[in-house]
């Protein structure tokens, strides 16, 4: 960890809403300058954890320290050093794009002049300068997201919380966003990101935890998780709906591990093409076959027995 303090340290964190346990005793530590991810399906407890870190949701049990401070007692101080991009853009519809950023700067005690200067700078950074005087409503989803990100940076935060930053965006808009987030990381901002897209986690995160039903089921770098839990490549074969399971004995030993899904079989192997040749050698002809690199999706499937996006 070096001499610098970890911005986020949580141990045995629990969040309950009535009888429902959203977060069930997790331990996390985010290092300075790190991009840290929470990967998991909807309802895994990612957003609840984010809200606790964001000091807008007191933990039910466990300890949480942000910049070494207690979020319940020192929420105001912590939030002053943090930027938040919520899951749904909560932009101020009564104001223009520029005014959104300016008033947000004022909330952080920036002078009017400093807030205006910073707002213009950030609009340039997210490439929305020409939309400065537009109201928020007519903007596209991707543009609103970029305004949200610009807004979260108004106080030059030491810690940036991004809750599903690209959900609902088209591929092009996602790539623009990823590019901006990468630039921010280069500048040294610590980022905490939730996502249920494995490609996003692989792109953005140095280290991540996989969450399921309020618990952490695995932790590591994206590549580390893949090499630890699954093979390098996957051979996906389809034999027709309902027939896949009956084929399992015949393909036994083709890959190092088999995952059975209703519509296909996944055969994990370090060499997918070799596995496919082996199938052909056994004269097994599937309806379709595909060799691809393993992803975090496969890790999640192995750990929980379920697919990530249903």
């Amino acid at each position: 960890m070096g001499s610098q303090q970890s911005p986020v340290v949580g141990s045995s964190l629990v969040k309950r809403f009535g009888d429902f346990t959203a977060v069930d005793g997790i331990d996390i530590e985010v290092a300075p300058g790190e991009a840290f991810g929470f990967l998991g399906p909807n309802g895994a407890g990612k957003t609840s954890t984010m809200r606790m870190i964001g000091c807008v949701s007191p933990p039910t049990a466990g300890t949480l320290r942000i910049f070494g401070l207690d979020p319940v007692a020192d929420g105001r101080k912590i939030r002053a050093r943090m930027g938040v991009v919520p899951q749904l853009d909560q932009l101020d519809n009564d104001l223009t794009v520029l005014e959104n950023l300016m008033i947000y700067g004022r909330y952080f005690d920036l002078s009017r002049k400093a807030a205006a200067a910073r707002a213009n700078e950030l609009l340039e950074f997210v490439q929305l300068t020409e939309k400065a005087d537009s109201k928020v409503d007519p903007l596209s989803g991707g543009q609103k997201r970029r305004v949200s990100i610009a807004r979260s940076l108004i106080n030059e935060p030491d810690l940036l919380l991004l809750d599903e930053p690209t959900t609902g965006l088209d591929p092009q808009a996602r790539h623009v966003l990823w590019d901006r987030l990468y630039q921010l990381k280069e500048r040294g901002a610590t980022q905490v990101i939730t996502t249920h897209f494995m490609d996003e986690a692989e792109q953005l995160c140095d280290r991540l935890v996989v969450m399921d039903a309020g618990k952490i089921v695995a932790e590591g770098s994206p590549q580390g998780l893949i090499s630890k839990h699954v093979r390098r490549e996957v051979l996906e074969v389809r034999f027709g709906y309902g027939l896949n399971e009956s084929m399992v004995p015949k393909v036994d030993g083709v890959g190092d591990r088999i995952e059975i899904l209703p519509d296909r079989l996944l055969l994990y192997s370090d060499d997918g093409d070799a596995a496919l040749s082996e199938l052909h050698r056994r004269e097994i002809i599937p309806e379709s076959a595909l060799v691809r690199r393993s992803s975090l999706e496969d890790v999640f499937l192995k750990l929980t027995g379920r697919t990530l996006v249903e």
């Binding site: 105001r76 919520p86 909330y107």
Partner: peptide
């Protein structure tokens, strides 16, 4: 949800 975003500031 204006106040949600206001409350994530100081």
């Amino acid at each position: 949800k204006l106040y949600d975003s206001v409350l994530s500031t100081p």
